[in-house]
Design a protein around this nucleic acid. Structure first.
Length: 419
RNA sequence: GGUGGGGUAGCGAAGUGGCCAUAACGCGAUCGCCUCGAAAGCGAUUGGGGGUUAACCGCCCCCCGCGGGUUCGAAUCCCGCCCCCACCGCCA
């Protein structure tokens, strides 16, 4: 949710900002709905004031004045009821329309309407030069018993896998490694609920826009989250935090569930695009003035993890048209996959500014009263895709995988032997 | 799932149809007085959202778990839901 006052005070600025993302439909209507709402609100409020006065007068009235006073108050009450119904409709119409408005892109976000216009900023790390034909992660993974895709399909359908043997050890090692690299930087580990109420999905901006992306338990009215961001963001909903407690930093670990609707035929094998995967996620609640510094912190953590794992990657800034609904800015790191011969998104960092905070009502108190915080999220380690990048980049001619130095204390072994 | 009790400010808690909503009372917090300093004591202050305003002041509206209803008027009465506590049942 954006601040509708912005739309009220400077509609051109808002329209220009949205035009950068490809425009939004019905911006003028929303402005009109808002104006109608406020006009009605004024009428209702003065109606209520009048009625309150009449009503209170009854309490003080003597027995003979009472019937007349009651009759007068009743007339006012009836009139009010009609107005209040209209106000109610107006508020609903405005809020429903406004709920679809995405965040305003930050000025540093490049122009562009499709992912083709995302900007590659930098390349980091050595691309490995193999003197043998590099295998892709599907071949390596099934050969080495890291995962079992066929049985995943048997049990749960396509895009489900069993992670097995060394795959499990690798996952647990990566999780603990990523967690450790955040703990000493003030991130508190959290395993959030992955089944959440509608308000959490709405508050993070995944609803109403991306409904089709998520599994839902209709019977209980709960959604399976596609990222621990949801549980972490909602953790402080309806709270007023202490200014001195900011930034609040969390390292969330959870399984994530995505329906991957509309991706039929894309990455159907292996760990790249699955309905269920585990991930360590950074999430920060910050003072609004500090959120871009925090953004840099989160991104630095992401890059450090990739570098430490000796995975080459490039940094891609999303253009305005490719931003998620809550994002003012989004930057991805894409790992190079020597086997597949392409780059793969392995991390993503978003500054949602006050967009989620407004919907979730997460505020802090300073001398001006309660103000909205900013929220940010960024992958620390998406386990499945990191395993993909890791094994493709650290494969050896004989089909074994070398474990990067920094991960060995966590795996307890320094290679996955060829079989 | 059943029965009983409960959800009011940062916390505890009073209030069972108007004179009780910034809301009694107590605690905590902040500021001031006192003090060399502190404690004690005394005094003051101490919620959120919204409208009006260029902004401030002011004025007004809304908020007693959530949503409906009854009434001129609801924290208070009625209905539904959620959550907490206790016991029972069921399950690990």
């Amino acid at each position: 949710m954006i601040d509708l006052r912005l739309l009220r005070d400077d509609p051109d600025m808002v329209a220009r900002a949205y035009a950068k993302r490809g425009g939004v439909e019905g911006l003028e209507q929303i402005a009109e709905l808002d104006a109608t709402y406020r006009e009605l609100l004024g009428e209702v409020e003065s109606g209520r004031a009048e009625h309150n006065r009449a009503s209170k007068a009854i309490g003080r009235a003597g027995p003979d004045e009472r019937p007349a006073a009651i009759a007068e108050a009743k007339t006012l009450a009836d009139k009010l009821k009609v107005l209040e119904t209209r106000l109610d409709h107006a508020a609903r119409a405005r809020d429903e329309a406004a709920a679809y408005l995405p965040n305003l892109p930050h000025e540093s976000v490049p122009e562009g309407l499709s992912e083709k216009e995302n900007v590659v900023d930098r390349h980091v790390g050595e691309i490995p030069q193999f003197d043998f034909a590099a295998r892709d992660h599907v071949t390596l993974g099934e050969q080495l018993g890291i995962f079992d895709g066929d049985r995943g399909v048997k049990t749960s359908g396509s895009r489900f896998v069993y992670l097995t043997g060394p795959g499990v050890m690798l996952e647990l090692a990566l999780v603990r490694f990523a967690l450790d690299s955040l703990l000493d930087r003030g991130f508190k580990p959290v395993i959030p609920p992955v089944l959440v109420k509608e308000h959490a999905m709405f508050g993070t901006g995944f609803l109403p826009a991306d409904e089709h992306e998520f599994y839902k338990s209709e019977r209980d009215g709960l959604y399976l989250t596609g990222t621990s961001e949801v549980g972490l963001a909602a953790m402080h909903s309806d709270e007023i935090l202490q200014e001195s407690d900011l930034p609040l930093r969390y390292a969330g670990f959870s399984s994530n569930f995505r329906r991957e609707a509309g991706t039929y035929g894309k990455d159907t094998k292996g760990l790249i695009r699955v309905h269920q995967f585990d991930k360590i996620e950074q999430f920060s609640f910050t003072h609004p003035e500090d959120s871009w510094d925090e953004y840099a912190t989160i991104r630095a953590n992401q890059e450090r993890i990739l570098q430490t794992l000796e995975i080459p990657y490039r940094v891609v800034t999303m253009c305005a048209g490719d931003l998620g609904s809550s994002a003012a800015k989004k930057v991805d790191n894409e790992a190079w996959l020597p086997g597949a011969g392409r780059y793969l998104e392995v991390t993503s960092a978003t500054n949602a500014t006050d967009f989620q905070a407004r919907r979730l009502k997460v505020r802090f108190r300073d001398s001006d009263g309660a103000r909205l915080v900013h929220t940010l999220n960024g992958t620390a380690c998406a386990v499945g895709r990191t395993i993909v990048a890791l094994i493709e980049n650290h494969q050896r001619p004989d089909g074994s995988i070398g474990i990067p130095e920094a991960l060995r204390p966590y795996t307890g072994f320094d290679e996955i032997k060829a079989v």
